[in-house]
């Protein structure tokens, strides 16, 4: 464990909690892409199946349960509890165009052709594009609530911190995982446009609205 990975995990946890609290407190999921949240639940489910097979640490296991629990709670609140506030008309990204090719890619490019490893690879690839429905929805509605931009900021920051974690681990441990690194770079690049708007607008107290 290193400082980049720890702050990355905490940033990820902050994002997940911010979103959960936003929906719970405002009793509304307006502006939130349910499709992205379903993809994140799928990412955690396929990545954390090793909860059943191997124990790494109390931290690792507890964080996995928290992530999975929050992800499903968020999906439940969007599609069941606060379904009336779900903006389905703007959440129209064709996720099948993501899931199917990524499923194929996971079969072709992986570290080991075993079920758990292929599911882990699928999860890594899927996570890198899982935010697209959310970014697409914001581009369609033309704006985002400020709390939603904070959610996206911490979510994007977490993988950027993981990139630093992988540099650290390569330098100090000689560890590197090309699949995770390439997917992590793609994932972080997808946030660059948002990061620019977040820093130039939201941090200056303005509302995030598109086109700029």
């Amino acid at each position: 464990m290193n400082i980049f990975r720890l702050t990355g995990d905490l940033s990820h946890l902050a994002a997940i909690i911010i979103l959960l609290l936003k929906i719970w407190k405002t009793r509304s999921c307006a502006g939130i892409s349910g499709k992205s949240q379903i993809l994140f639940a799928l990412v955690f489910t396929t990545r954390y199946l090793d909860l059943l097979t191997s124990f790494i640490s109390l931290y690792n296991t507890s964080m996995k349960f928290i992530y999975i629990g929050c992800a499903y709670a968020t999906v439940y609140m969007i599609y069941a509890k606060f379904k009336a506030t779900y903006d389905g008309n703007h959440d129209t990204f064709r996720v099948e165009f993501l899931v199917v090719p990524i499923g194929g890619l996971a079969f072709l490019v992986n570290h080991d052709f075993s079920p758990l490893e292929i599911l882990w690879t699928f999860s890594i690839y899927l996570e890198s594009v899982a935010i697209l429905p959310q970014l697409f929805m914001i581009s369609k509605t033309g704006e985002a609530e400020t709390i939603t931009t904070h959610y996206l900021f911490f979510l994007g920051l977490y993988r950027a911190l993981y990139l630093m974690n992988w540099i650290w681990r390569f330098y100090f441990e000689g560890f590197f995982d090309m699949i995770a690194i390439v997917a992590g770079v793609v994932q972080t690049i997808l946030y660059c446009d948002f990061f620019y708007l977040y820093v130039t607008k939201v941090l200056k107290g303005k509302k995030l609205s598109l086109p700029a």
Partner: peptide, 10 residues
């Protein structure tokens, strides 16, 4: 080095 198949990251 080949990555460990036991993934220790979240």
């Amino acid at each position: 080095s080949a990555p460990p198949l036991r993934h220790d990251e979240l």
